[in-house]
């Protein structure tokens, strides 16, 4: 997996760039967000921030509003009340046309991949480039090849989505989200229903995007293994199959700056903090203890 012509990495030490602190607007800010469906409150007064370069892991039971949160952040649905800010710009009052330009900075990886089943892998991944216009077919093919290489699927370019396995579909979905180098990626259960090995490949892609590209992201999952892998490991060796060891000591503290957790309960934020704080909280909070057990 090579990334030679992918956008240049920031000059600092790969993998250990702390998320930028509050001197700049957070990549995502969710403020007092509430939404109900048929009088059932799905999200109630939810607030949190995702700093630039940070991955926010959203945990919660099934039907706790995690997917709805992803849709709200990407502007696909409107909240009943509350605000969503993307790089400091409030998107909640924007019209669908105005949101289109905001969404260019946001990639979404849907739970079931949501690939266009009548388009080939090449056409799926190149979709945004075709929509933008102004790219030659050669240029598009090069970029698709590059981004498919990044997810390890360059040989699938001419296949149809129906020819791919579940894990491959997720990776193509990530490639499609990456093609225009978005600053934010929203992952909705990217490893759900996958075997542990394939799930691990997806998690490594998430680490790689966070640590090498500095992409801010929200990772919705109820697979705790994936959540803690993202929090405790970093992408270490871009050239090979090297291990991604658990970090210790100072490195661990610095890596924690890159990942934090939100736990949803009954539509509200029950916990918002680092991995260390989450593990500490389980001693006092039976819900977290039960959830993590």
């Amino acid at each position: 997996m090579s990334l030679q012509s992918y956008p240049p990495m920031p000059a600092s030490e790969p993998g250990l760039r702390p998320a930028k602190e509050s001197t700049v607007a957070p990549a995502i800010e969710v403020r007092k967000l509430s939404i109900s469906f048929e009088e059932h409150a799905v999200l109630d007064n939810v607030s949190f921030r995702v700093r630039e370069g940070e991955t926010k892991v959203i945990l919660g039971e099934s039907a706790s509003g995690k997917t709805v949160l992803i849709k709200l952040i990407s502007g696909l649905i409107k909240p009943d009340s509350g605000k969503v800010f993307i790089f400091g710009k409030e998107i909640t009052p924007l019209s669908e046309d105005e949101l289109m330009s905001i969404r260019k900075d946001i990639g979404v990886v849907f739970q079931e991949s949501a690939l266009f089943d009548s388009l080939s892998v090449l056409e799926n991944v190149a979709y945004r480039l075709h929509e933008e216009g102004g790219h030659s077919e050669t240029e598009i093919e090069e970029r698709v090849s590059e981004v498919l290489g990044f997810v390890g699927l360059e040989q699938t370019m001419n296949l149809m989505p129906s020819d791919l396995s579940g894990g491959m579909k997720r990776r193509v979905s990530i490639a499609r989200a990456l093609i225009t180098h978005p600053k934010i990626i929203l992952y909705d259960e990217p490893t759900a229903g996958l075997d542990p090995l394939t799930g691990r490949t997806i998690v490594e892609l998430i680490l790689r995007l966070r640590d090498l590209e500095g992409v801010s992201s929200v990772l919705v999952t109820h697979r705790l293994t994936d959540a803690f892998t993202v929090a405790s490991e970093r992408f270490q060796d871009p050239n090979g199959e090297a291990s991604r060891p658990r970090l210790k000591g100072r490195s661990q503290q610095r890596a924690e700056l890159l990942t934090s957790f939100v736990v949803l309960k009954n539509g509200g934020v029950f916990f918002d903090g680092s991995e260390e704080e989450l593990l500490a909280a389980q001693k006092q909070q039976p819900f977290i203890r039960e959830f993590l057990s």
Partner: peptide
Amino acid sequence: GSMVVSDQILAMRALGTD
């Protein structure tokens, strides 16, 4: 309809297409 139930319409909107 098939695109709606398989989230392809949502994906289309998320990719910046009306």
